[in-house]
């Protein structure tokens, strides 16, 4: 049975080493944990600020694709952000949230690479490849 170990990301709690015991795998666990937690804190904070602003600014949301696409235009987004508009902050929160698991995949590739685990660099790169394919299809195949 592998010995118990303390992970650097566990805030002093005693936890088991990961299934593939050793420092290498523990690095991946710590990296994944930090990204998930960081994404959660940042996006939740932005969502809370944005929601309160939307309530006080009495935001009206037309339930149309055109309205959403308009908010996603760079100059509209930037203007909204610099003028503390609820729509821009909520859009930023959504982007951060969607990018959190994507960042987790990218960081895992790096962590596996540092740990010389070529098989899982391959496995995780395939997952990242599917995400890239998704973006390409969404941007260029007009799926709407």
């Amino acid at each position: 049975m592998p010995p118990r170990a303390t992970n650097s990301a566990s805030h002093g709690k005693h936890v088991l080493p990961p299934p593939q015991a050793g420092e290498a795998a523990a690095n991946v666990y710590a990296a994944v944990y930090e990204v998930l937690l960081g994404g959660m804190y940042v996006s939740t904070t932005l969502y809370i600020i944005g929601t309160l602003l939307a309530l006080f600014q009495h935001v009206r949301v037309p339930l149309t694709v055109a309205w959403v696409k308009h908010q996603m235009e760079w100059h509209v987004f930037w203007h909204g952000l610099t003028h503390f508009r609820a729509e821009a902050i909520l859009l930023l929160a959504t982007v951060v949230l969607i990018l959190t698991p994507v960042s987790r995949v990218v960081l895992s590739i790096y962590a596996f690479w540092v740990d010389h685990d070529r098989r899982y660099v391959g496995v995780t790169s395939i997952v990242f490849g599917v995400i890239v394919l998704t973006v390409i299809l969404s941007r260029f195949a007009h799926l709407h």
């Binding site: 694709v65 055109a66 909520l90 709407h144």
Partner: peptide, 11 residues
């Protein structure tokens, strides 16, 4: 990217 995520609803 299809413009269906209404972020004020998501919040």
């Amino acid at each position: 990217l299809a413009g269906l995520v209404h972020f004020p609803v998501v919040a």
